[in-house]
Structures are given as structure tokens and as C-alpha cells.
Design a protein around this nucleic acid. Sequence first.
DNA 1: CATCTATTTGGCTATTTTGCCAAATATAAA
DNA 2: TTTATATTTGGCAAAATAGCCAAATAGATG
Lengths: 108, 108
Amino acid sequence: MIMDTKTKARYAARARIIKAMAHPTRLLIVDQLAQREHCVCELRDLVGDDISTVSRHLSILKNAGIIEDEKRGTQVYYSLRVPCVLNFFGCVENVLKQNAKEQLRVID
Amino acid sequence: MIMDTKTKARYAARARIIKAMAHPTRLLIVDQLAQREHCVCELRDLVGDDISTVSRHLSILKNAGIIEDEKRGTQVYYSLRVPCVLNFFGCVENVLKQNAKEQLRVID
DNA sequence: CATCTATTTGGCTATTTTGCCAAATATAAA
DNA sequence: TTTATATTTGGCAAAATAGCCAAATAGATG
């Protein structure tokens, strides 16, 4: 009972979105943008990486449709396009907490 | 205003969880396990990949704490440990729908 | 126009991820 | 014990990702 092409494509599309979130720096960026829009240089200061690296992370998130940009003068401001991605954090914390509990249980 | 080590570690931990989900096959597996537990060979039939590949995907999900396993006889049954990951799907569909809308808008 | 600042992109290397095959392991059954 | 089935693991090669530097681009300002 192998998957048809259409179903496969659907999962691939979903994975692309999630993959865009699957990086520490990009999670931090999303977290920051949840509060307010930021320009690239502000995010570089927060992240501490080379600005070209930050720009690449931003383009990955933008490409996935998670954030959007607006150029104002010489700066580019990024903001969260789909706030529901913030719901990920709650569940992720949940998983981490469960894992920690399990760790304790194993050690005992 | 660069990040401290602790904060960095927190985002890294979160990213590890999300990365475990960031693959089409693994999303399919999570989706299936949401309905009921499955043994590896059932999942292999659904996925269509080599069984060693499926096993590796399962170990990644298990390692992240998203699924758990139980050996019964010669088979290993996997089940969802943290159902809240299913909430991801709703938001991901949301993003995909928004992206499609934007596509339409651009074409017009 | 020349220059400055902010951002993106090309190009490169190092690292990680993927997926297969073959071999190892574990349990059940003959 | 031998055999068969289910699963995991080692090892490899191909592909994708990450992050840096340097160069290109774009807008603002003198």
C-alpha cells in the first residue's frame, strides 16, 4: 500500500515549511519577530553571526512563507507573516520537559 | 546585545526537536502513529523505502522524544509519545494556503 | 557623480543528512 | 540447534545545509 505521488508531494511541502524552522538561529529570529518587526542589522546584533549568514536565514524563512519583508530606505524590515508558528514553541517545550522527566526516571 | 550561552542552548534544543520532524517520511510516520501504533514493517509498506531507512527515521523521532517503541515478540511497535506535535500540521497547512493565495495574487 | 550604509548574492569548504546495501542482532518456530 | 522473520547498525557515496569572505546591488546623502 505505497503512497501516491500526490500524497508524497503534500508531505514534502509540509516538510519544507518545518525544515525552514529547524535551526536555532531561525527560531530565535521568529521569536524576535513575534514581538515586533526588525531590520537585518538589528537581528545580526541579536544573533551575533555574520550579516550574510543572517540574511541567508531570513531568505529561507521568507521563502517558506513564514516571514515577509519590507524595504524602507536602505533597510529591510522583516516581520512574522504567519503567527501560528509560535504554537510550535509550546509543544516543543512540552517535548523537552517530557524528555527531562524521562531522564530523571531513568537515572533513579 | 549578543545571546548568552544558556539562551543559545535553549534554541538549539528546540531546533533539535523540530529538525526531527523536518522530513516528509517522518511527517508521514507521525501522521500514521497519530491514528494507532504501527510496527516497522507496516510503516515500511506505507512509506515504500528500504526498511533500514524507515528504521533510521524511527530512531531519529524516538531520539527526539516524539515517539516511543515497545518490542513485542520479534516486532517493534512505535507509537506517538507527544500528540501535541499534531498541532504543527494545522499551522503548516495554514502557511501553505497563505502561500498559494499569494501565488494567485502575484499571477493576477 | 562619489561615497557611505544596509543588504544580498556568488563561491568556497566543512559538516550534516539521506538512503541504500550488507552484516549483525534478536526473537520465534521447526 | 537450525532456520526464518523483524529490526537495527556499520559503512559508504550522494546530496543538502551552514557559515564565512568578498563582491555585487540598492538607496541615501554630500
